Deep mutational scan, measured.
Amino acid sequence: YKIYPYDSLIVTNSISVKLPKDVDRTRLERHLSPEEFQEVFGMSIEEFDRLALWKRNDLKKKALLF
C-alpha cells in the first residue's frame, strides 16, 4: 500500500470526500506509515490485525478512517 499522511485519509460525513485515487477505500488504515499508525491507533499494525473485526471497525470509525 502507498503511504499517505493521516490528514489526507480521514473521512468526514461530507459527500465530497477527495481521497487519493489509488487508496483502498476499505482499508484506509493500511496507507498510514507505521509511526503514524501507532500514533492514531495506539498500537502496531500487527496488534491491530489480531483484534476482532468489530473492534477494528470501531477503532477505524473513531479515527475517521471508516
Rank of each mutant, 00 (worst) to 15 (best):
Ile15Asp: 15
Arg25Val: 15
Pro5Val: 03
Ala52His: 11
Glu36Val: 07
Asp22Asn: 07
Lys61Thr: 08
Asp22Thr: 05
Pro20Ala: 06
Ser33Tyr: 03
Ser14Phe: 07
Val11Pro: 06
Glu39Ala: 13
Phe48Gly: 00
Ile15Met: 15
Leu53Asn: 09
Lys21His: 14
Asn13Asp: 13
Asn57Asp: 12
Ser16Thr: 13
Gln38Cys: 11
Leu64Val: 04
Met43Tyr: 04
Lys18His: 15
Thr26Glu: 14
Leu19Trp: 09
Lys55Ser: 08
Arg50Asp: 10
Asp7Cys: 15
Leu9Cys: 02
Leu51Lys: 05
Lys55Cys: 11
Pro34His: 11
Arg56Phe: 02
Ala52Ile: 08
Arg56Ser: 04
Gly42Val: 06
Trp54Tyr: 10
Asp7Met: 15
Leu59Phe: 05
Glu29Arg: 00
Phe41Lys: 00
Arg25Thr: 10
Lys18Ala: 14
Ser8Ala: 14
Lys60His: 01
Leu28Val: 03
Ser8Lys: 13
Lys2Glu: 12
Val40Trp: 04
Phe37Glu: 00
Ser33Arg: 05
Asn13Gln: 10
Pro5Ala: 08
Leu53Phe: 10
His31Ser: 03
Asp49Tyr: 08
Val17Ala: 15
Lys21Asn: 13
Val23Ser: 03
Glu35Ser: 10
Ala63Tyr: 07
Tyr4Ile: 06
Tyr6Lys: 03
Lys21Met: 13
Ser8Gly: 04
Asp7Tyr: 14
Lys60Glu: 01
Arg50Trp: 06
Leu28Glu: 01
Pro34Cys: 09
Leu65Glu: 02
Ser8Val: 14
Gln38Phe: 14
Arg27Cys: 08
Phe37Tyr: 02
Asp7His: 15
Leu65Asn: 01
Phe48Pro: 00
Asn57Pro: 01
Phe48Lys: 00
Glu46Tyr: 10
Asp58Tyr: 12
Asn13Tyr: 05
Arg50Phe: 08
Asp7Phe: 14
Arg27Thr: 06
Lys62Met: 10
Asp24Arg: 04
Lys21Ser: 14
Leu64Asp: 09
Gly42Tyr: 08
Arg25Asn: 07
Lys61Ile: 10
Glu36Ala: 07
Leu51Phe: 06
Leu65Ser: 01
Phe66Pro: 05
Tyr4His: 04
Glu35Phe: 10
Leu32Ile: 07
Val23Phe: 03
Leu32Lys: 00
Glu47Tyr: 08
Tyr6Met: 03
Lys2Asp: 09
Arg30Trp: 03
Arg27Val: 06
Pro5Ser: 08
Ser14His: 13
Gly42Arg: 12
Phe48Ser: 00
Phe66Glu: 07
Tyr1Pro: 15
Thr26Tyr: 12
Gly42Met: 11
Glu29Ser: 01
Ile10Ser: 04
Glu36Thr: 07
Gln38Pro: 03
Thr26Trp: 09
Lys61Phe: 08
Pro5Trp: 03
Gln38Arg: 12
Ala52Trp: 07
Glu46Cys: 11
Pro5Phe: 03
Leu53Tyr: 09
Glu39Thr: 14
Asp58Gly: 08
Glu46His: 11
Ile45Phe: 09
Val11Gly: 07
Phe41Glu: 00
Asp24Trp: 04
Pro34Val: 15
Asp49Gln: 08
Trp54Arg: 10
Lys60Asp: 00
Asp7Val: 15
